[in-house]
Design a protein around this nucleic acid. Structure first.
Lengths: 190, 190
DNA sequence: TAGCTGATGACACCCGCTGACATCGCGGTG
DNA sequence: CACCGCGATGTCAGCGGGTGTCATCAGCTA
């Protein structure tokens, strides 16, 4: 006789995405999420710092993954190729074809609420900061490190938007590569 | 005998920045701001959509200014130079030397609170969206338009940070120019 | 058997924010 | 001059997000 069902956090996440899809993010209260998960509101806030965070799992994992790949890039890699390599590796590891439909749903929910967009932008900014730190570790000086880091995140944002919009005709890594080439073309043509 | 002192909005803004500087953003309640401004809490929310917005005045003006300058750039301008021209014009119009100390204070407060950073990122993202729209109007196709727009905002962010950090030895427009050159160098060297 | 631990519940509370309605100087209009 | 409508503000009640604090109690360990 267990006292509580296991994996309260997972139940909360499932309940949240279901309710967000049914009624929208803003119309859903934390009390509703907690009730559907079979716990109290207080328990929700023990697992998630705030209501938005339930939609942003594993952000720290991805950040360390990216920073680690930049740090591990061969010495011959330029700053931009180091970033690009990390992004493509992350695409292969975290954003496979089977995740695409889930990513699209999540992207839709986030697009529907300025609150969630703010949070997403903050996460992306933390990726950029991690990139910049990893590049400085490689000897890249400011402001170049920050500029490449932000450009890399811009490439990721743009490529990701195309990936979730298109119907999985192409992997995210390939789209990232194309987008990066486009960035170089349009910046260096000036 | 006037019924109310004039310029409640201005008094609220002044009270807010003073209290944020004294006690920090998170420790300051809207009730305190309203009390110091001599109005009620309800009036605060009539002028500002939320507590953070009191620190982000004229954002819409700047956005239309930037988009207008991109639209008015000469046909010979490349996308990136059109963006750069708009940024430098904005630097001259909105961020003169006499605004620098105020900008620094504001930047410090924003840096102290994740909530405020989120809001700032959202504003910058809206600038990027306006840039991208103006570029598409000029015939630049996606994803190039969005990429240049985001790169331009990255240049502005980086240059602005350097401007408020340094002791006004240089105007913002000049720093933007230098930062843009650095971006080109580090992106095109790949 | 006793005690400790860790996840959860229960409760009170603060603050950001909103809707609805009341107030009343001022400026115009007959 | 009397009236009236406008618009900025006040008042009040209430919701939802978020937190501090203590109680509960199955299961493990001694």
């Amino acid at each position: 006789m267990v006292r509580w069902e296991p994996d309260a956090q997972g139940r909360l996440r499932l309940a949240a995405v279901a309710l967000f899809a049914e009624n929208g993010y803003e119309q859903t209260t934390v009390a509703q999420i907690a009730a559907r998960a079979g716990v109290t509101e207080r328990t929700f806030f023990r697992y998630f710092a705030d209501k938005r965070e339930v939609l942003f799992p594993g952000g720290h994992d991805l950040e360390t993954f990216l920073a680690g790949h930049v740090a591990a890039a061969p010495p011959s890699a330029t700053p931009l190729t180091a970033i690009a390599g990390a992004l493509e590796a992350a695409a292969a590891a975290f954003f496979t074809a089977e995740h695409q439909v889930m990513s699209r749903q999540r992207h839709l929910v986030i697009s529907s609420s300025p609150d969630l967009q703010e949070r997403e932008l903050l996460k992306l900014a933390s990726f950029a900061a991690a990139f910049a730190a990893a590049l400085r570790e490689r000897g890249v000086s400011e402001p170049g490190a920050s500029l490449v880091a932000e450009s890399g995140v811009a490439v990721f944002k743009t490529a990701f938007a195309r990936w979730v919009a298109d119907d999985a005709r192409q992997g995210l890594a390939g789209i990232i590569e194309e987008t990066l080439a486009e960035l170089k073309a349009v910046v260096c043509a000036s």
